[in-house]
Measured scan of single mutants.
Amino acid sequence: MQIFVKTATGKTITLEVEPSDTIENVKAKIQDKEGIPPDQQRLAFAGKQLEDGRTLSDYNIQKESTLHLALR
């Protein structure tokens, strides 16, 4: 499925993911596309910060959802 990640600079990244993917996997995909190390990424959805060990389906993130990326 496709999801979107909006960066602090307003850029939107499109990612191909599975509901079973962990947040860690998603951060690795962002690193592949943007070169941002996962340990510098903070992802949020619906106002909640997402934890590495959880999956997209844990957070009820569905196709075409938009996550927000902040850098630490």
Rank of each mutant, 00 (worst) to 15 (best):
Met1Ser: 03
Ala46Gly: 12
Gln40Asn: 14
Asp39Leu: 13
Phe45Ser: 03
Lys29His: 07
Asn60Ser: 11
Leu69Asp: 01
Ala70Phe: 14
Gln49Arg: 10
Leu56Glu: 00
Thr22Glu: 04
Thr9Glu: 13
Leu67Pro: 01
Leu67Phe: 03
Ile3Leu: 15
Arg42Ala: 09
Val26Trp: 00
Leu67Gly: 01
Glu51Asp: 08
Leu69Phe: 04
Gln49Gly: 11
Ile3Asn: 00
Ala70Tyr: 09
Ser57His: 15
Lys11Pro: 07
Met1His: 05
Glu64Leu: 13
Ile13Thr: 04
Asp58Ile: 03
Leu67Met: 04
Gln31Gly: 09
Arg42Trp: 06
Lys33Asn: 06
Lys29Thr: 04
Ala70Arg: 08
Ile61His: 00
Gly47Met: 04
Asp21Ala: 10
Ser65Cys: 04
Gln31Asp: 06
Asp58Asn: 09
Gln31Leu: 12
Pro19Gln: 07
Lys27Trp: 02
Pro37Leu: 11
Glu64Ala: 12
Leu43Cys: 01
Val26Ile: 15
Gln49Trp: 09
Asp32Gln: 14
Gln31Thr: 11
Ala8Glu: 13
Leu69Ser: 02
Lys6His: 10
Thr9Val: 15
Gln62Ser: 09
Arg54Asp: 06
Ala46Thr: 06
Phe4Leu: 07
Ala46Cys: 05
Asp52Ile: 06
Leu15Met: 05
Gln49Asn: 14
Ser65Lys: 04
Ile36Lys: 03
Asp58Ala: 08
Pro37Ile: 07
Lys48Arg: 08
Gly53Asn: 10
His68Gln: 13
Glu18Val: 13
Val17Ser: 03
Leu69Gln: 03
Asp21Thr: 12
Ile61Ser: 01
Ala28Trp: 08
Asp39Cys: 06
Ile3Gln: 00
Thr12Lys: 07
Gln40Phe: 06
Ile30Glu: 00
Ser20Leu: 10
His68Ala: 06
Ala46Leu: 08
Glu24Trp: 14
Thr12Ile: 15
Asp39Glu: 08
Val5Arg: 00
Ile30Pro: 00
Asp21Trp: 14
Met1Trp: 12
Lys11Asn: 11
Lys33Phe: 09
Lys27Ser: 02
Ser20Pro: 06
His68Ser: 14
Glu24Val: 11
Arg72Trp: 15
Gly53Glu: 09
Val17Tyr: 05
Ile30Leu: 08
Ala44Asp: 13
Leu56Ser: 01
Asp52Cys: 04
Thr9Met: 12
Leu43Phe: 03
Val5Met: 03
Pro19Ser: 09
Glu24Pro: 04
Asp21Cys: 04
Ala70His: 15
Thr55Gln: 13
Leu43Met: 03
Ser65Phe: 07
Ile36Trp: 10
Ile36Ser: 04
Phe45Cys: 03
Phe45Tyr: 13
Arg54Ala: 15
Pro37Cys: 05
Gln2Gly: 06
Val26Tyr: 00
Lys11Ala: 15
Gln2Trp: 12
Ile3Tyr: 01
Leu15Glu: 01
Leu43Asn: 00
Gln49Val: 15
Asp21Glu: 10
Asp52Ala: 11
Asp58Val: 04
Glu16His: 15
Gly35Ala: 06
Leu15Gln: 01
Phe4Trp: 06
Glu34Tyr: 09
Ala44Trp: 13
Leu15Lys: 00
Glu34Phe: 13
Ala44Thr: 11
Ala70Pro: 02
Arg42Phe: 14
Tyr59Asn: 03
Ala8Trp: 07
Lys63Tyr: 14
Glu64Arg: 13
Gly53Asp: 12
Thr22Ser: 08
Gly35Glu: 05
Ser20Asn: 14
Arg42Glu: 10
Ile36Gly: 02
Thr66Asn: 05
Glu18Leu: 13
Thr12Pro: 05
Leu15Asn: 00
Asp52Val: 05
Leu43Asp: 00
Leu67His: 01
Lys6Gly: 04
Gly53Cys: 05
Met1Leu: 06
Lys33Ile: 15
Leu50Gly: 01
Ile13Lys: 02
Tyr59Gly: 01
Thr22Pro: 11
Phe45Ala: 03
Ala28Glu: 10
Lys63Ser: 15
Arg72Met: 11
Tyr59Asp: 02
Asp21Met: 12
Lys33Ser: 15
Pro37Ala: 15
Ile3Asp: 00
Glu16Gly: 10
Ala28Ser: 14
Thr66Gln: 05
Asn25Cys: 04
Met1Lys: 02
Ile13Ala: 02
Leu56Thr: 02
Leu56Gly: 00
Lys33Arg: 07
Gln49Lys: 09
Gly53Ala: 10
Ile30Asn: 01
Arg42Met: 12
Thr66Arg: 04
Arg72Tyr: 15
Asp32Ile: 12
Ala46Phe: 15
Gln31Pro: 01
Thr55Phe: 15
Gln2Ile: 13
Ala28Pro: 01
Lys6Asp: 14
Thr7Asp: 07
Leu43Arg: 00
Ser20Ile: 07
Lys11Trp: 14
Ile3His: 00
Gln62Phe: 12
Leu56Met: 05
Ile36Asn: 03
Asp52Lys: 04
Leu56Cys: 03
Asp52Met: 05
Ala46Ser: 10
Leu69Val: 06
Asn25His: 10
Gln31Met: 10
Leu50Val: 04
Glu24Cys: 05
Asp52Ser: 09
Gly47Trp: 05
Phe4Asp: 03
Ile23Asn: 01
Lys48Phe: 11
His68Cys: 05
Arg72Asp: 10
Ser20Met: 12
Ser20His: 14
Leu56Tyr: 01
Asn60Trp: 05
Ile36His: 11
Ile36Gln: 03
Thr12Glu: 06
Gly53His: 08
Ile61Leu: 04
Glu16Lys: 08
Val17Phe: 05
Gly53Thr: 08
Lys48Gly: 07
Leu69Gly: 02
Ile3Trp: 00
Leu71Pro: 13
Ala8Tyr: 07
Ala8Met: 09
Ala28Ile: 10
Glu18Phe: 11
Ile23His: 02
Arg42Ile: 15
Thr14Trp: 09
Ile30Val: 06
Gly10Asp: 07
Thr12Gln: 12
Gln49Ser: 13
Gln62Pro: 12
Gln62Val: 07
Lys27Gln: 02
Ser57Pro: 03
Pro37Asp: 07
Leu43Val: 03
Lys29Leu: 14
Phe4Ala: 04
Glu34Cys: 04
Thr7Gly: 07
Val5Ile: 13
Ser20Tyr: 10
Ile30Cys: 02
Gln31Ser: 11
Gln40Tyr: 09
Pro19His: 06
Phe45Gly: 02
Leu69Tyr: 02
Leu56Gln: 00
Thr14Cys: 04
Leu50His: 00
Ile23Val: 09
Ile23Gly: 02
Thr22Gly: 04
Thr7Ala: 06
Ala28Thr: 14
Ala8Arg: 14
His68Asn: 07
Thr55Cys: 04
Asp52Gly: 14
Glu51Pro: 03
Asp39His: 10
Lys63Phe: 11
Gly10Tyr: 05
Asp39Tyr: 08
Lys33Ala: 11
Thr66Leu: 13
Gly53Ile: 11
Thr12Leu: 13
Ile61Glu: 00
Lys6Trp: 12
Lys29Arg: 10
Asn60Gln: 13
Lys29Ser: 06
Glu16Cys: 04
Asp52Arg: 04
Gly10Val: 04
Ile36Ala: 04
Ala28Val: 09
Phe4Glu: 03
Lys27Asp: 00
Arg54Ile: 09
Lys6Ala: 07
Asp58Cys: 03
Thr9Gly: 15
Ala44Cys: 05
Ile36Thr: 07
Glu24Ile: 14
Gln40Ala: 12
Ile13Arg: 02
Glu64Ser: 11
Thr9Arg: 10
Asp32Leu: 14
Ala44Glu: 11
Ile23Ser: 02
Pro38Tyr: 12
Thr22Leu: 09
Pro19Trp: 09
Leu67Arg: 01
Val5Phe: 03
Val5Pro: 00
Glu51Phe: 07
Arg72Ile: 13
Glu34His: 06
Gly10Leu: 08
Leu67Gln: 01
Ile13Trp: 12
Gln2Phe: 09
Ser20Glu: 08
Tyr59Phe: 04
Leu50Arg: 00
Met1Asn: 03
Gly35His: 06
Phe4Lys: 07
Asp21Ser: 14
Arg54Leu: 08
Gly35Cys: 04
Leu43Ser: 00
Thr14Pro: 12
Leu15Pro: 00
Lys29Trp: 05
